[in-house]
């Protein structure tokens, strides 16, 4: 067999390989972004925000260090868009999701935000030593229902929606922070809300004030 020097080379150029790799990586980052901005409800009815680390590793067939490298790349890519990659723990799993860096209105309506503010203010005022930090539903009712700001039915519906969206977890009589609330409002922001709410939560209604003074 003779060797022809002009025959086309089977080995591709290194520059081509590099371009292809880059293209594939960009494709992968796009898929990763789409996956991280999803949510689903598991069999227990708990809202999972983002994706579990184990799921990501299995889907991408990479180890932990490879995943961290990929996520770092994604973090750099989305930072100029005002987005941030967040890692958090839910039970035994580590999850990743994406949140905004700046204050923008979310998917809640005004009354729902107000109820959320009351919950945050009341829990922040409660003792910090007891964990989990929780309050009775009755405390919120005194502020909202007894003062005539919401009806009991409205409050109940709003609380149910907040539970559905993962902001709070609720037992028969008590309310605690859900995972999503702690992601969206970090400790500093919660304290700021508690401080700002003193004017709004102080005192009784105007009619009662007139009677007393």
């Amino acid at each position: 067999m003779t060797t022809d020097p002009n025959a086309p080379n089977d080995v591709p150029d290194p520059s081509d390989v590099k371009e292809e790799e880059e293209f594939e990586e960009r494709h992968l980052l796009g898929q990763l972004f789409a996956a991280l901005t999803a949510r689903y409800r598991n069999e227990e009815g708990q809202l999972n925000i983002g994706v579990k680390r184990q799921d990501l590793q299995e889907a991408l067939h990479i180890n932990k260090t490879g995943l961290t490298r990929l996520l770092d790349l994604l973090r750099q890519e989305i930072a100029p868009l005002g987005l941030e990659l967040v890692e958090y723990r839910l039970g035994r799993d580590t999850l990743y999701c994406i949140r905004t860096l700046y204050g923008v209105p979310g998917e809640l309506s005004d009354p729902e935000y107000a109820v959320l503010g009351v919950i945050i203010a009341t829990i922040e005022r409660a003792s910090k030593t007891k964990r989990p930090r929780r309050i009775a539903t009755k405390d919120i009712e005194t502020v909202l229902v007894a003062r005539g700001r919401l009806s009991r039915y409205q409050l109940d519906r709003i609380l149910r929606r907040l539970v559905e969206l993962g902001y709070i977890t609720r037992t028969a009589r008590r309310i605690t922070y859900g995972p999503r609330l702690e992601l969206e409002f970090d400790a500093e922001r919660r304290e700021a809300i508690a401080n700002a709410s003193t004017i709004y939560l102080a005192g009784a209604t105007a009619t009662q004030e007139g009677d007393k003074l």
Binding site: I49, I98, R99, I193, S197
Partner: peptide, 18 residues
């Protein structure tokens, strides 16, 4: 009251993205 208080809470939120 609801609108004003909601503003206080809203402007401090960093919502998750979906």
């Amino acid at each position: 009251w609801i609108i004003h208080f909601a503003e206080e809470v809203k402007r401090r939120a960093t919502p998750l993205m979906f």
